[in-house]
Computed example of a mutant assay.
Amino acid sequence: MSLLAALASGAQAVEYRSTARHGVIFYDTPADTSAKRFILSANIPFEVMSEQGDWVRVRDRDGTLSWIKKSDVSTRRFVQVNRLSDVRQSADSNAPTLFKVERNVLLERLDASNTGWIKVKHRDGQSGYIRIEDVWGA
């Protein structure tokens, strides 16, 4: 029982952020001289694992661990759609569908609730609610 309590007290909430601009370089280690792993466009979500000085260790959707500069982390949050999904008028499975979104579409995350839904906004301006399990980066 004490082991479970210790594990629970050490648990932290998952923190997601997004890339701040086009051309964000993901590095192998927290140094400008380290190997470059890949480059991503703006608004791509990632999970924050830790911070070290001006660097952030992140995990992408595929589980790859990398480092990016803190200056490349956006204050705006985006999610990436996992599969063809409905965006609804309200946080309810019976609410009217406003539009459908394809896999990999990026949506701005406006608000999250404890109901299993998040409020999102499409780049064309439409906003509504999508099930949390239909996106990555929430």
Rank of each mutant, 00 (worst) to 15 (best):
N82M: 08
L98V: 06
D86M: 02
G128Q: 09
V48F: 03
V87A: 05
E51S: 15
T33I: 00
R76P: 02
V105M: 05
K100R: 13
L84I: 10
G116M: 03
M49P: 00
L65W: 06
S90M: 02
T29C: 04
T33E: 12
S113M: 02
L98S: 03
R103H: 08
A35R: 15
R131I: 06
S113Q: 09
K121D: 04
G128S: 10
V101H: 02
T97E: 13
I132V: 15
L106W: 04
I118T: 14
G63R: 07
A31W: 11
R88N: 10
S41W: 14
P45S: 07
T115H: 04
G53L: 06
I130T: 11
S66V: 10
D134E: 10
L107S: 13
K70E: 09
L110K: 15
L110Q: 15
F78E: 10
I39Y: 01
T115E: 13
D111V: 00
W117H: 05
W117N: 07
N104S: 15
L106M: 04
I130A: 06
A95G: 06
E47N: 03
R83S: 12
D111T: 07
V87E: 10
I132G: 11
N94D: 15
R88P: 12
V135Q: 03
A91H: 08
Q52R: 11
N94V: 14
K121S: 12
